[in-house]
Simulated scan of single mutants.
Amino acid sequence: MSDTTMPHTPTEARAEARTVSFRGGGFAPQRKRWVGGVVFVLLIAIAEWGTRSGWISALTLPKPSDVLETLIELHQSGLLYKHLSPSLSRLVVGAALGASLGVGVGVLIGLFSYIRAGLVPLVAAIFPIPKIALLPLFVIWFGIDEGSKYALIAFGTFTPTVVATYGAVDNVDRSLIRMGQSFGLSWLSIVRKIVLPGAMPGILSGLRISLAIAIILLVAAEMLGAEYGIGAYILEAGALYDLERLFAGVLILSVLGVVLSTVIGLIERHLLDWRS
């Protein structure tokens, strides 16, 4: 009895190989934008139901609808922009100074051994210091006006940006650098075409953390000697135990953080489109 099984042709073998699914696909991130919105709406709905039914005490959490009414009143009275404008100004100036200096110093530490040997111990010494504890010192140095607020935000943004940047430079694939050297690229071309693009994902990830720290320090700085600002608004609401206004201020900070994270995401998609 002859064997009826015929050997596969090369074409059939390739067709079968193409049908094998990639089992590592679960590690590839997929965008599910609607999930975040659903979770947010669900939490708000639970808080609204809990506060209206009495399950959550009004002394613990205000009604989300009351917080929304407070935000609408802030907008209609113009106080929202009186508080938001100086906060945005302080955040932009302070974070821009700290982040730009941090990226520059971090790149120098990653590229030059002598600078690394001199500055890494200094950065390691000042990085764990709570920056809020230095606010009185900055007030003495720069005055109680805008200078101390800019300095505190810049200093708080500077140190995490430095650490993230030189860590990102260190993590650039050395085989790519050696490949550039083998093709005869100059040192400057290797830095511009290989090192900086390779370090950019780590640098942008560090900026996310640095900007979050900048918002925290902004609130702390505005709680001292500021007439207008989100921090001053939250401080006043807390002193009066006005939970609606307090949570309205917290919500504004939360939205600000989401906006900054979205901006970083847009920058990532623009600068890192070579990864796709």
Results as ranks from 00 to 15, higher is better:
G110H: 04
G94A: 14
I56V: 13
T19Y: 03
L42N: 04
T19K: 12
S85W: 15
A95D: 10
W34L: 13
E73R: 14
R31P: 02
W49Y: 06
I46F: 07
G37E: 05
I109T: 06
V105E: 03
V20D: 06
L97D: 07
L88M: 14
F40L: 14
D66S: 11
T51D: 06
G98V: 01
K63W: 03
L74T: 00
V41Y: 07
K32S: 15
V93Y: 10
G26W: 12
L61N: 03
S21E: 15
S113P: 06
L101Q: 10
S89K: 15
P86Y: 01
L111F: 12
G110V: 03
G78P: 03
R52S: 10
I72E: 07
L91H: 11
L68N: 02
G98M: 02
R18D: 09
R31N: 06
G37N: 05
P62T: 10
V107A: 05
P86E: 02
H83W: 03
H83V: 02
H83G: 01
W34F: 09
G110W: 01
S85E: 13
V35I: 13
T70P: 00
R18A: 10
L68Y: 11
L71V: 04
A95K: 02
R52Y: 09
R23P: 05
F22T: 07
G94D: 11
V105T: 15
L42R: 02
I72L: 15
G104V: 13
G26V: 14
Q30H: 13
G78A: 09
L111S: 11
G104S: 13
A96H: 06
R18E: 11
L71D: 00
G25P: 02
V93P: 04
G24N: 08
G98A: 15
H83R: 09
L101H: 13
P86C: 08
R90Q: 15
G50I: 02
L74G: 01
H75S: 13
A95M: 12
R31H: 11
K63C: 07
F22P: 02
A45I: 03
R18K: 08
K32Y: 14
G25F: 10
K82L: 14
L43Q: 08
P29E: 10
S113W: 06
P29M: 04
S113D: 11
G54F: 10
H75Y: 11
G26Q: 09
L84V: 06
L80P: 06
L42G: 09
V39S: 14
L79A: 15
V39G: 08
L59G: 04
Q30C: 05
I44W: 07
K82A: 14
I56F: 15
G98W: 00
H75N: 06
S21M: 09
L68M: 10
P62E: 03
V92K: 12
L101C: 13
V20P: 00
Q76D: 14
G98I: 00
P86W: 00
I72V: 12
G36Q: 06
P64M: 08
L84W: 03
T70I: 01
L43A: 11
L84F: 11
T60G: 05
V92P: 01
L84S: 05
F22C: 05
I46N: 02
G78E: 04
K32W: 13
L91P: 01
V39D: 05
E48R: 03
S53P: 08
G36Y: 10
